[in-house]
Write a protein that binds this DNA or RNA. Structure first.
Length: 708
DNA sequence: GCGCTACGCCCGTAATTATA
DNA sequence: TATAATTACGGGCGTAGCGC
């Protein structure tokens, strides 16, 4: 590098650092120390410098916050570690139950005080930001929790997040958000972790998770602007946020008042935290905005007080909140509690009661689902509640309908449960006029007129015509094509309905012979060359889908996403699964007699065997499956690791848990299927047997090393 | 009995493509 | 070129029933 270049680079660095520092003061601390004009001058100088010397421009420059050229499409991005959701609670008792469960699982006495953090729960869009070498590399939406969408260009335009991690040298001036009011900040009484955080090393790779929101006042201004430009105002902030973040033109995102608030970490390499509060202090020190009002609590009584305090101050926050989150602060305790399927055991969301409204129930319709279940649906006089206009709501089933005594013509109370799903709470019986009509559940399928059957001890009523009912076929095919199943792009409910209506598709297998039906496809409504190509490409891509998606997509009763993964992980191949006996099926985790019976019955049915053959003939590959995809690669993934003898560093059940957490199994005895034997002190016959079988024997040290 | 999964359902927004 | 239709995706719940 020449002297001149070094000088330019130095000036660039200085400008970037200064502008970002001002950004932080303006957007996070709300205490700017220079005028807008002075700021603009700095910004212009940086832009001119970069225009004159494009080599200087990089993605961490504040000039990148104004948005760049539109992209063609959003790409998928796999989260380094899955983004889970939280278990919900709705009242004090739920929270106390949570505390008791935590103590029981941790073997703590009932009077022990666990240290919790209580944080406001922002109502926006979940986001993961991945920083590599301290620079923002990727922003990704939650998606299905495993794979989200890469929205990096849009995320870069969010003003109150750092494009690169810079330890905060000013030290004490943190987390003084506008609207924080009198509530003590988490960081104020405990300055300890924060100095520690800013002095320690930057992680080499870290995923910062949080929520993207539009503050209420900015949202209103945005709408005023839209109205003055002759555009329709947006209906609510959350959906606008979602739409903006997923916009293909990042200049749109740059013009929108998006803000990011950090709340937790995903993957974190090269840095660890003892407590969640340490992480929050670290995030704060690195230039992230952390929601105001986070409170550390000793014991559940303080938690309940903190929840009440946040609810009292709900209206004073600059953004919408829909509840609060309770987390165990200590990371060791978190690790000991672990996870259930999609949510951690060490955290709980506390959700506020939903806003309610009154409206007229116009009619009750019946829908037929893919399993033939008949579901009554309320058609409502449209009413604005909880930020949206509600006109439909599920009534679940006949029993529910009778229990609530809901009649067509009733005035009813409606809410959005959890602020999302419309729900009919109750009828206003006192407002009845006598013209309301009690709903009589049909005894024929509303779609195909087949008889409706009732199974003893089951609430649901079903259409008996499993094979030919068009409603069931439509729902089955749509389910097969849906995101969590085969994820066939371009095949939505409307197109499925057309395909079924025209007789082009009578079963899932027919999808795989559509290649030869171009002419027929082109004749369908709204289908021209492009759409047909897209559809066929989507179907082609699904031919090599992993078998757990296929299994889930088939819609076998009791086999959902989770169980399908378990089964495929357990059996490894389609053939093994299809030929498994009742007993073999029950050996798989989470599979009991009912699920096993459902599977065996399904595979034994000749029509289903023909279906599989037809799919296979249509080019579906049914590839073998090595491992559940949710877990990161690890030597124990999919392996059977037996522990014997006494380990000095942990108990046997802990060792088993550690193995299982990494995707392995830990049965009690050695067989030729065993991959590793961990031999502790005083190992006996199992060690002998393992040696005889020539298995891998690990010492405790080897084991700990492999655990990582 | 508790905890968890399966299943079904809803609304708003942006993008995309067909069609008028 | 403008409009309409369709898809995808973001936001999760309530209820039933299985597994442990």
């Amino acid at each position: 590098m020449s002297v001149d270049e070094a000088k330019l680079r130095g000036r660039w660095e200085a400008l970037v650092a200064e502008i970002e520092a001002h950004n932080r003061r303006y957007y996070i601390d709300a205490s700017p120390i220079i005028s807008d004009r002075a700021y603009d001058a700095l910004f212009r100088e940086l832009q001119e410098l970069e225009d004159a010397h494009p080599a200087l421009r990089s993605q961490e420059s504040p000039t990148q916050r104004v948005g760049g050229l539109p992209v063609d499409a959003l790409s998928k991005f796999t989260h380094p570690t899955p983004m889970l959701s939280l278990q919900n609670s709705y009242d004090e008792q739920d929270i106390r139950d949570f505390d008791e469960r935590v103590k029981r699982q941790l073997d703590l006495s009932a009077d022990h005080s666990v240290r919790y953090l209580v944080e406001p729960k922002l109502d926006g869009m979940a986001m993961e930001l991945i920083y590599e070498g301290g620079v923002l590399a990727v922003g990704v939406t939650r998606g299905d929790g495993l794979v989200g969408e890469n929205v990096t260009p849009n995320v870069r335009t969010i003003r109150n997040l750092p494009l690169r991690l810079v330890p905060d040298s000013t030290g004490e001036q943190v987390s003084s958000t506008a609207g924080s009011g009198s509530q003590a900040s988490l960081f104020a009484p405990t300055p300890g972790p924060q100095t520690k955080a800013s002095s320690a090393a930057l992680p080499t790779r870290v995923a910062i998770r949080g929520e993207v929101v539009m503050p209420q006042d900015s949202f209103q201004k945005l709408n005023e602007r839209r109205v003055s430009e002759g555009l329709e105002p947006y209906v609510n902030a959350r959906n606008s946020t979602s739409g903006t973040v997923r916009n293909l033109d990042s200049r749109i995102a740059a013009a929108a008042p998006l803000r990011f608030y950090a709340h937790s970490a995903g993957v974190c390499e090269g840095r660890s935290f003892e407590r969640h509060s340490d992480f929050l202090a670290f995030a704060d020190a690195m230039g992230f905005q952390v929601p105001a009002g986070i409170t550390a609590c000793d014991g559940i009584d303080e938690v309940i007080a903190a929840l009440a305090a946040i609810e009292d101050r709900r209206a004073s926050y600059p953004y919408d909140i829909d509840g609060a989150v309770v987390k165990i602060d200590d990371h060791d305790l978190q690790a000991r509690l672990g996870f259930v399927s999609r949510s951690p055991r060490w955290s709980m969301a506390y959700k506020y009661a939903a806003e309610q409204a009154t409206t007229r129930l116009l009619a009750i319709d019946v829908q037929v689902g893919r399993t033939g279940v008949l579901t009554p649906v309320a058609r409502l006089e449209p009413v604005f509640v909880g930020g949206v206009v509600v006109s439909n709501a599920t009534l679940h089933n006949r029993d529910e309908l009778e229990r609530k005594d809901i009649r067509a013509g009733d005035l009813v109370v409606v809410q959005r449960a959890g602020d999302v799903i419309p729900q009919v709470v109750r009828p206003l019986v006192e407002k009845r006029t006598g013209t309301e009509v009690t709903f009589v559940f049909p005894d024929q399928c509303p779609e195909c007129r087949a008889p409706v059957v009732e199974v003893e001890d089951e609430v649901a009523l079903r259409c008996a015509n499993e094979v030919d009912c068009p409603a069931q076929t439509r729902a089955r095919v749509a389910h097969f094509a849906s995101r969590k199943a085969l994820d066939i792009e371009g095949l939505g409910v409307k197109l499925v309905a057309q395909l079924v209506e025209e007789g082009l598709v009578r079963s899932i297998a027919d999808l795989y012979s559509l290649d030869g039906q171009r002419t027929a496809l082109l004749a369908l409504e709204r289908m021209a060359e492009t759409s047909v190509d897209n559809l066929l490409a989507g179907i082609e891509a699904s031919r090599s889908a992993p078998i757990h998606r296929l299994l889930f997509g088939l819609g076998i009763r009791f086999v959902g996403e989770t169980v399908a993964k378990r089964l495929c992980g357990h059996f490894g191949s389609w053939e093994a699964l299809a030929s498994a006996t009742q007993e073999e099926l029950e050996e798989a985790e989470e599979v009991g007699p009912i699920v096993a019976d459902s599977l065996r019955t399904w595979f034994a049915d000749e029509r289903n065997q023909q279906l599989i053959t037809a799919m296979s003939d249509g080019g579906v590959q049914f590839p073998d499956e090595a491992r559940p995809e949710a877990l990161p690669a690890h030597p124990f993934l999919g392996k059977s690791v037996v522990v014997t003898g006494t380990l000095s560093s942990m108990g046997r059940s802990e060792a088993k848990a550690a193995i299982e957490a990494r995707g392995g199994k830990s049965p009690g005895s050695v067989s030729k299927k065993t991959d590793y034997l961990v031999a502790g002190e005083n190992a006996g016959s199992k060690l002998e047997k393992a040696r005889k079988l020539g298995l891998n024997v690990l010492s405790e040290d080897d084991f700990l090393q492999l655990l990582g």
